[in-house]
Design a protein around this nucleic acid. Structure first.
Length: 604
RNA sequence: GCGCCCGUAGCUCAAUUGGAUAGAGCAUCGGCCUUCUAAGCCGACGGUUGCUGGUUCGAUUCCAGUCGGGCGCACCA
C-alpha cells in the first residue's frame, strides 16, 4: 500500500519500509497495547484514584444504593491545598439522577472506597466534591519513580505505536524562513516530541510548494538580478522578490556554484537565458538555506515532500479523475469544478482552470491522499492561521475521493501571527530578506533556547508578541533562563557535593525521604508528580504551551525550596533525601526541556 | 457581508477542557546575600474575565446576540 514511487527522489527516506499496511499496523498496535498492560508500571495517582472510585461506584451499584448509569466524571488536581490534592466531581453529577443530595451521594461513595495506604484521608467538601489528601508516602513513591525511570519518566504508551505524520513549516522555497515559520517549527517540533513521548511513531514532514507561480516569480527575480536589473528598474518583474538573498543566488549562479539539498545536487548553468536552469538552481539554493536554518533551530524532518513530484507522478491528475469518477465535479465556464459544497464548503471550487492548469489546492489534496496511502493513522497539519481557508477545501477534496478517509482528516493545528518587538518598537525589516524578520534573525538576536521557548510558551491560537529584549535578558524576567537556572543549580549542588568530599547514597536516600520536612519540598514533589499528566495533556490536545507553563511552575517550586533549605547538611540521611529530590527535579526539568527542544545547561 | 481565531490585573500571558476563593511573571512599593549561583527568595498593590442574555448544582470555559482586534473569503499560492 505504501507508495515507494513518491519517495524515489529521497534515498535516505525509510517511511515506506516501515509502514506496510493498515492491517499490519493494527496488529502491531494491539500487541503494543497488550504489552503495555502486562508490563504494568504502577499507575499514576490520578489513575489509581479513578480506579478506586470506580470500584466504590461498582459496589454501590451492586448493593442497589446507586442504580443509575455512570456519568463521565473527572479526577483532577485541586487549585487550593485546602481542598486536598485531588478532587472528584462524580457525586455532583450523580445527584440529580439518583434523587439524592450531592453530599449524601459523596459520603456513600467515600464509605465504599477500598482501603489505600497512599491516602491520608478523604473528605466530602463544598457542594459535594470528594477531596483526596495523599499521604507523604505517595509523594515519596513518586520521587523514587522519577529516579528509577530517569529519562523515561513521563513517557507513556498511549499512542500504542500508531503512526502519525506531523507536517509543519512547509514554506515555499522562495526565500528565508520568517517568524511565522519559526513559530510553526517550534510548535510542530515540540508537538512531534510530545507525541513520540506518548507512544506514537512520529514522522516529521515538510511539504515544498516547488511547482507554483511563486517559483516562476523566484526564477524571474533571480534572472533579473543576473542581468543587473534592480527592483527600482521598470524591467523588474511584477511580483518579483526584492530581498538581498536574491542577489546571493544570482552571484552563485553566475559563479557556476554547486548546491545540494534534499538529495538534489544542482550545478549552475551560468546562462542568463536558461530560466529553467535558474529555477532549479534557485529552488535548491533556497532549500539548502532553509534546511540550514532549521538545523540551526534544532529541527530535523524525516520526510521532505515535493509538490513537483505529485505532478511528475501524475498524482494531481489522478486525484481529479478520481473525484470526477465519484461524480463530485462538473464543468462550467471552461473550468472543472469540485462540488465542495457537498462537503460543507461555502462555495464550489475550481480544480482545473480554463487554461488547463490545476489550482493549488488539488496538489494539496493529492499530497494528503499520499499521507493516507502511506499509512498515517493520524495526520496533523500545522498551518499559519492565514491559511485556514484551505482546510475545508482539502478535507472536501479528500471526502470527494471516496476512499474512506474520515471527515476530520487531517487534523489541523493553526498558529496565529507573531509580532516582534525590540526597544518598544515593532521590528519588521530583515537585512537579508528585506521585508520580514527571519528565523535566523531571531536566533541571532535571542539565541536558540529563548527563541524556541518563547514561540512555544503561548497557546498557538493566540497572537504572539515576541519581546526580543526580554528573550535576551539574563535575568529573572526571562522564563527560559529561570527554568534553565533551576537545572544548573542542581548541577552546581552536585559539584559542591563532590568538592566537599561527600557521597550521595541513593539507597539510603530512598529510605529516608520522610526526612524531607518542609512544605517547600512537598510543593516540589507535587509539581514533579504532575509531569506525566502534563505531557499526556499537552500531547492529547496538541498544545505544547502547557508544558512550557508547567516547567516554569516546577522551576518556581524548586527555587523556593532551594532558598529555604540547605541541601548539603551534615546529617547524611537528611542530605541524601534532599539531594535525591533535587536530582529528581533536575531529571524532570531535563525531560521537559527536551520535549520543548530547549537545552538543559550544567552551568550558567 | 460571510467564515475562522482572539478579547482575563497597567503590560505579557495561564487557568487541569464545566468545578470550589480566576492564577503567574513583568511593572510599582517594601523586605532578604558571612550560607550549595541574589540569573534567586519573601511580602504588598492590582479583576464586574469586553458587554447582554441563556443552558445548570456551578460558566473565563458551552450556546445566542452584541462591541472591539487579527486573519481569510481567486480560474493567486
Amino acid at each position: 500500500m505504501a507508495s515507494s514511487k513518491v519517495f524515489r527522489a529521497f534515498p535516505g527516506d525509510t517511511v515506506h519500509q516501515v509502514i506496510h499496511s493498515r492491517a499490519v499496523w493494527c496488529a502491531a498496535a494491539a500487541a503494543l497495547r497488550w504489552r503495555a498492560v502486562i508490563a504494568g508500571a504502577p499507575p499514576f495517582m490520578k489513575d489509581a484514584l479513578r480506579e478506586s472510585l470506580q470500584q466504590a461506584l461498582d459496589s454501590l451499584r451492586r448493593d442497589g444504593v446507586l442504580d443509575v448509569p455512570l456519568p463521565d466524571f473527572v479526577v483532577e488536581r485541586t487549585r487550593s491545598h485546602e481542598h486536598g490534592d485531588f478532587a472528584c466531581n462524580v457525586a455532583l453529577l450523580l445527584a440529580k439522577q439518583a434523587g439524592k443530595k450531592p453530599r449524601d451521594v459523596a459520603a456513600a461513595i467515600v464509605a465504599a472506597l477500598p482501603a489505600n495506604p497512599l491516602l491520608a484521608r478523604v473528605e466530602v467538601a463544598g457542594p459535594g466534591f470528594i477531596n483526596f489528601y495523599l499521604a507523604d508516602a505517595a509523594w515519596h513513591a513518586e520521587v523514587r519513580r522519577v529516579l528509577q525511570e530517569g529519562a523515561g519518566y513521563g513517557r507513556s504508551r498511549t499512542g500504542g505505536g500508531r503512526v502519525v505524520g506531523v507536517e509543519f513549516v512547509s514554506a515555499n522555497p522562495t526565500g528565508p524562513l520568517h517568524v511565522g515559520h519559526a513559530r510553526a517549527a517550534a510548535i510542530g517540533d515540540s508537538l512531534s516530541r510530545l507525541l513520540a513521548a506518548t507512544g506514537w511513531k512520529v514522522y516529521r514532514e515538510y511539504y515544498y510548494n516547488d511547482a507554483g507561480a511563486q517559483i516562476g516569480n523566484l526564477a524571474l527575480s533571480v534572472q533579473a538580478r543576473i542581468r543587473g536589473i534592480e527592483p527600482a528598474d521598470p524591467r523588474w518583474p511584477e511580483n518579483g522578490y526584492r530581498g538581498d538573498y536574491i542577489c546571493d543566488v544570482a552571484r552563485d549562479y553566475l559563479a557556476g556554484a554547486t548546491v545540494a539539498a534534499g538529495g538534489e545536487r544542482v550545478t549552475a548553468a551560468k546562462s542568463p537565458d536558461d530560466l529553467d536552469a535558474i529555477r532549479r538552481f534557485a529552488v535548491t539554493w533556497l532549500r539548502r538555506e532553509q534546511d540550514a536554518d532549521l538545523r540551526a533551530f534544532g529541527v530535523v524532518f524525516d520526510v521532505y515532500f515535493l509538490e513537483s513530484s505529485l505532478y511528475r507522478d501524475a498524482k494531481v491528475q489522478q486525484v481529479v479523475e478520481r473525484i470526477a469518477a465519484q461524480g463530485h465535479s462538473y464543468e462550467a465556464d471552461g473550468a472543472l469544478w469540485l462540488r465542495s459544497t457537498t462537503f460543507g464548503d461555502d462555495k464550489d471550487r475550481v480544480m482545473r482552470k480554463s487554461d488547463g492548469s490545476y489550482t493549488y489546492f488539488v496538489p494539496d489534496v493529492a499530497y494528503h491522499l499520499s499521507k493516507w496511502e502511506r499509512g498515517y493513522q493520524r495526520a496533523i497539519t500545522e498551518l499559519g492561521a492565514d491559511h485556514h481557508g484551505s482546510l475545508t477545501r482539502v478535507r472536501a477534496g479528500l471526502q470527494a475521493l471516496g476512499v474512506g478517509i474520515p471527515k476530520d482528516w487531517p487534523e489541523y493545528v493553526l498558529h496565529q501571527m507573531v509580532t516582534v518587538m525590540r526597544g518598544g518598537e515593532e521590528v519588521k525589516i530583515s537585512k537579508r530578506a528585506g521585508s520580514y524578520v527571519t528565523l535566523r534573525d531571531l536566533i541571532d538576536m535571542a539565541g536558540l533556547d529563548a527563541t524556541r521557548y518563547f514561540l512555544i510558551a503561548r497557546k498557538s491560537d493566540s497572537q504572539l508578541v515576541f519581546d526580543i529584549d526580554l528573550a535576551r535578558a539574563q535575568t529573572n524576567d526571562n522564563p527560559v533562563y529561570y527554568i534553565q537556572y533551576a537545572h544548573a543549580r542542581v548541577c552546581s549542588v552536585e559539584r559542591q557535593l563532590h568538592e566537599r568530599g561527600m557521597v550521595f547514597e541513593l539507597g539510603n536516600a530512598l529510605q529516608h525521604l520522610d526526612r524531607l520536612d518542609s512544605g517547600y519540598a512537598r510543593s516540589v514533589m507535587v509539581a514533579l508528580s504532575r509531569y506525566p499528566e502534563t505531557v499526556e495533556a499537552a500531547a492529547a490536545t496538541c498544545e505544547p504551551h502547557v508544558l512550557a507553563q508547567y516547567l516554569r511552575d516546577l522551576a518556581g517550586a524548586f527555587h523556593v525550596w532551594y532558598n529555604a533549605r540547605q541541601f548539603l547538611v551534615d546529617d547524611g540521611d537528611v542530605r541524601n533525601a534532599r539531594v535525591a529530590l533535587a536530582w529528581a527535579t533536575r531529571q524532570v526539568l531535563a525531560n521537559g526541556l527536551d520535549l520543548l527542544g530547549v537545552s538543559a545547561p550544567q552551568s550558567m
